[in-house]
Design a protein around this nucleic acid. Structure first.
Length: 639
DNA sequence: CAGGAGGGGCTTTTT
DNA sequence: GCCCCTCCTG
């Protein structure tokens, strides 16, 4: 098979091992995606596996789409394989078997915003002041418990234990799950139902997990359960690129793989094909200072390349102007704007770059900050769809009952809710019995009855219309589109444009997946991230956080805001494990660059409007070997 | 009882 | 800049 000729000996070994557990420690730019795709192609080509026996897990939907495309190019077919993220894999498994865990196929997936609404309701129910404990704190505790597969009996904090139970009870009542539930409930299902587990074990004879260093406890457990029978588990990752511990990721999953599978074949990919020698030297200089890592040496055969340019800016505006000027120079040198990326630690930093790039007329794309599917107007439309598929979803129902304004306000909802609590009914069921609630006046009852009649009408329609026609019907009939059409303010205009954009995207979706139901659509969009939507083009500079940069590469990279308190972030300064993760974050950023790297920092930065602080240089900056820097610096940098 | 206007608080990273 | 809370009006 000639595809093996594209590979170096280590890569080839990883691709051709027929069975058993494999750990691939793949340094940055060492061709790990190539190894995974070629391995899948090889297994199928050699008839070791059928397409339906393959489960490949990626970190983002975008990575999954790319992998599918690559396999399609190699084999001419990529159907029946499962190439998905952990979350979308589990969503699908739960959909196929949901009745066994007490939810229906129509379950709603709650995002962080929905989770917070639910937690606020719980706090409200328990008469707890949000000043005593913030909803965000509760959310973070709940997520952690689920990510670590912790038992609720072992929660020390009484308050959290009560809230945790209440929160989960509500999710159950609403026929809804949160992100972490997708994994957690699948693990629980596999643990309790041997037949279901066996069905999936038999199906997935070969399992491949990418970015294994960023799996959490629940994902680890899920992987182990699925692979227990055939033991053809191939995990790929790099401990130096583990940057999601705050989301429950445990670096020890990759460090201890050989303990879990003593017969594992370990393959190290240490040749970097991406960057210049200079860039690699800078990256190594930084990451070598970490204590928690497997020792390794990344090397490359590429050119020495250009040295790193450093700029000390007066403030963030000066920093952005420098980046803009450099980008104009690069453009004159025939670089595509699409080959250029600007990275920063926090989304907030993107604003100054945006302002500046508009002024300099540099086309750009911001990836991540204001996520399309998290915009209020988009969530409103989706909430209508969620209520129609799952009327028990009270978070969505509450969201839309008065959007557009129907004069059904807070006090009325409270009355309906307390009636529901008394009679053990969901919000929707209570609305159906609105006649019986004596404390609500005639006029309000009429408004509610009209609303319920409208929703019921939508539910009936959902079977007869196509996905696109149906959504169009809803935004028109509900009066939502019209309410945005007033265009009194710039904001309302943008909102309407966004809703129209959503309609177009639904049309495209329906074209791509003609068989997809409303339920499929909702599951898909609930699990889509901003990076998934991003399409690299030649014409626009890419702006994103260091986290979003993982797995990507660009000719030219700017890493900005190299200041103490930003990289490392001030909240991660005090604990060594977090501190080292910040160092890895910088390492990830540096290793994205193929040809040229720019580092910038600002002497003062406005934390938020008008409040300036003087900064000091990032301690990580001093770890970069001095001889990789260009000698001609734009300012008198004190080293 | 609904809803708009105005004021104060806080911002890490995201499937 | 965004969200949430409060206060006031109709």
């Amino acid at each position: 098979m000639d595809l093996l000729s594209d590979l170096n000996p280590e890569q080839r070994k990883a691709v051709t091992i027929q069975r058993g557990p494999i750990l691939i420690l793949a340094g940055a730019g060492s061709g790990k995606t190539r190894v995974i795709t070629y391995r899948i192609a090889y297994l199928l080509h050699k008839k070791y596996a059928k397409p339906e026996n393959i489960l490949a897990i990626t970190f983002t939907n975008k990575a999954a789409d790319e992998m599918r495309t690559r396999i399609f190019k190699l084999l001419g077919d990529s159907h029946r394989m499962w190439i998905r993220t952990f979350h979308s894999t589990c969503a699908r498994i739960l959909r196929e078997t949901s009745e066994r865990i007490g939810i229906t196929r129509n379950f709603t997936i709650y995002d962080e915003h929905d989770q917070l609404s639910l937690i606020k309701d719980c706090l409200h129910d328990c008469n707890i002041d949000t000043k005593a404990i913030t909803p965000a704190t509760v959310l973070s505790c709940i997520n952690k418990i689920k990510q670590n597969l912790a038992s609720s009996d072992h929660i020390d904090d009484e308050l959290i234990r009560v809230l945790y139970k209440q929160y989960n009870k509500k999710l159950g009542d609403y026929n809804a799950v949160d992100f972490d539930d997708l994994i957690l409930k699948t693990v629980e299902l596999f643990r309790t139902d041997e037949n279901v587990l066996m069905r999936y074990q038999n199906r997935f004879k070969y399992i491949l997990v990418d970015e294994y260093q960023d799996t959490n406890r629940a994902q680890y457990e899920l992987t182990k359960l699925l692979a227990a029978k055939h033991r053809n588990l191939c995990v790929v990752g790099d401990d130096d690129q583990s940057i999601y511990s705050w989301r429950g990721a445990e670096i020890k999953n990759i460090l201890d793989f050989e303990k879990d599978f003593p017969d594992a074949v370990v393959i190290k990919l240490e040749q970097n094909y991406r960057s210049t020698k200079t860039i690699l030297k800078a990256a190594s200089g930084v990451v070598e200072n970490n204590e928690y890592r497997k020792p390794k040496i990344l090397w490359c055969d590429n050119d020495v390349g250009e040295r790193l340019e450093v700029f000390e800016a007066v403030d963030a505006y000066n920093e952005a102007a420098y980046v803009a000027r450099k980008i104009m120079e690069l453009k004159l040198q025939d670089f595509n704007l699409g080959d250029i990326a600007v990275f920063y630690r926090i989304n907030y930093q993107s604003r100054v770059f945006e302002e500046c790039f508009i002024k300099y007329q540099i086309p750009y794309e911001v990836i991540g900050s204001l996520k399309f599917y998290e915009r209020a107007e988009i969530k409103n439309v989706l909430a209508y769809l969620k209520v129609v598929t799952n009327p028990r979803d009270s978070v969505s129902l509450k969201r839309i009952i008065n959007i557009p304004s129907r004069k059904i306000g807070y006090t009325t909802i409270e009355k309906v809710l307390s009636y529901g609590k008394e009679h053990n009914l969901t919000l929707y069921e209570s609305l159906l019995q609105i006649e019986k609630i004596t404390s609500i006046d005639r006029k309000t009852k009429k408004r509610i009855q009209d609303f319920v009649a409208m929703i019921n009408g939508f539910i009936e329609l959902s079977d007869t219309l196509s996905l696109y026609e149906f959504v169009l019907e809803i935004v028109k009939d509900s009066g939502y589109l019209e309410s945005l059409a007033q265009e009194k303010t710039e904001r309302e205009y943008i909102r309407r444009k966004n809703v129209e954009e959503l309609l177009i995207s639904i049309k495209d979706y329906a074209k791509e997946y003609p068989d997809a139901t409303l339920r499929d659509y909702l599951a898909d969009v609930s699990l889509r991230s901003e990076i998934d939507e991003w399409n690299a083009t030649d014409e626009r500079v890419n702006l994103m956080t260091l986290h979003n940069a993982k797995g990507l590469e660009f000719d030219i990279v700017f890493i900005t805001g190299l200041e103490d308190g930003l990289i490392p972030h001030y909240k991660s300064q005090y604990e060594l494990k977090q501190y080292e993760e910040e160092r890895r974050l910088l390492y990830v950023g540096i290793t994205r660059a193929r040809k040229k790297l720019f580092l910038t920092f600002a002497r003062q930065r406005d934390l938020f409007r008008g409040d300036f602080t003087y900064t000091t240089l990032s301690p990580f900056f001093r770890e970069i070997p001095v001889d990789v820097f260009a000698t001609t610096m734009e300012s008198g940098l004190e080293m």
